[in-house]
Design a protein around this nucleic acid. Structure first.
Lengths: 189, 189
DNA sequence: GTACAACTAGTACGTACGTTCAACTAGGTT
DNA sequence: AACCTAGTTGAACGTACGTACTAGTTGTAC
């Protein structure tokens, strides 16, 4: 939003900063109007810049969508990796992450799902779309060695998010935690 | 495609037939280009009629999308209900249905997912989007009384479909059957 | 200071969009 | 016969789209 420090570290950095600004504006659009609302014009307007500028940084809409999706998934990757690396209970952390889809994280989760669905059409988006699943699988791998259980666990997490998004009902982290544990370890605890 | 029998049962029926024709053309578009490709013009062109005619039957694009999604989910509902009502193993039937997402049923499954994702934005689409989950839950209810297990089972089915669609890998019905059984009944058989 | 590359801005072209509208056709009714 | 109404058509409205192009501006290197 604020552009006061454009010239801090020279030219190159300013460009990267612009990129980040444009990506953020894109995500704002996706959250508000869905992926279909993303156009060079709407993004430029949201960012308060000219249309040509978004085109300068992202030659095609695909480039822009890929960058936006990557940005979202990167945020999730960081959080899940944190869950794996820290001492706490990973399943509990993941359950809370999933439960967020019903609350303040709804828009972000929705943005991720919209862009993932888009990935089925646009191959360029696929690697980014897969990263959420890969990360969840990695987390599951710290709990069990059974590949079938891991596969089911990943699918379960995805389905739970989808259910929360579609039904728009409240989500109880403890309940989700119990369901996850049952699926992965065969026990509720 | 063929309109030779338009006047079989009088005027009113011909209208319903047109509706069906337009819906089918819409689904063809969704399968080929995604939900974003659905416009009055593209649908009309696909159906070989004029733009005004699609507008005559479906005043807004939302109406058209709702009708298309309902048509898809109705087809699934029929098949799942058939699995429930017949003597065979429902889990096996469901596993085969899910596995179809990798083969000839991929486009239909993809269309359903695209339209379901759209439902998160357009409330009008939600009831239709929920019906797949409701049907799977009903099927699960014939196997267990544990509501948590049913919830997890539905989420699992949804996630499995998504995984198949996104990864585009082959799906083994027997393997899926085993995963489903494990999740719902706690056993692989 | 001059030169060059990165960046910004404005404008314009062709296309497609949703929607409206007046006119035309063809069964069905009276 | 005249009439009515659902169905159908083609043309047009204003708007927004992706993209291209030219011209200007800045920051950095020499």
């Amino acid at each position: 939003m604020t552009d006061e420090q454009d010239t801090v570290d020279g030219r190159k950095l300013r460009g990267q900063r612009r990129r980040a600004q444009i990506i953020e504006a894109t995500l704002t659009i996706v959250r508000r109007d869905g992926a279909a609302g993303v156009t060079h014009r709407t993004v430029a307007k949201e960012a308060g810049i000219t249309t040509s500028l978004t085109l300068y940084y992202f030659a095609t809409l695909d480039d822009l969508l890929v960058a936006a999706l990557t940005s979202v998934t990167n945020a999730y990757t960081r959080r899940i990796r944190q869950l794996i690396d820290t001492e706490g209970d990973p399943l509990d952390g993941l359950a809370r992450l999933i439960a967020e889809s019903a609350g303040p994280g709804r828009e972000r989760a929705l943005a991720e799902r919209e862009l993932s669905t888009l990935a089925a059409r646009r191959p360029a988006l696929r690697p980014a779309a897969r990263s959420w699943r890969d990360n969840v699988a990695e987390l599951a791998q710290t709990q069990t060695d059974d590949p079938d259980a891991i596969e089911a666990f990943v699918a379960l997490c995805d389905g739970l998010c989808a259910a929360i998004l579609l039904d728009d009902h409240d989500a109880d982290p403890d309940h989700i935690r119990a369901v996850l544990s049952k699926a992965l370890l065969g026990t509720n605890r």
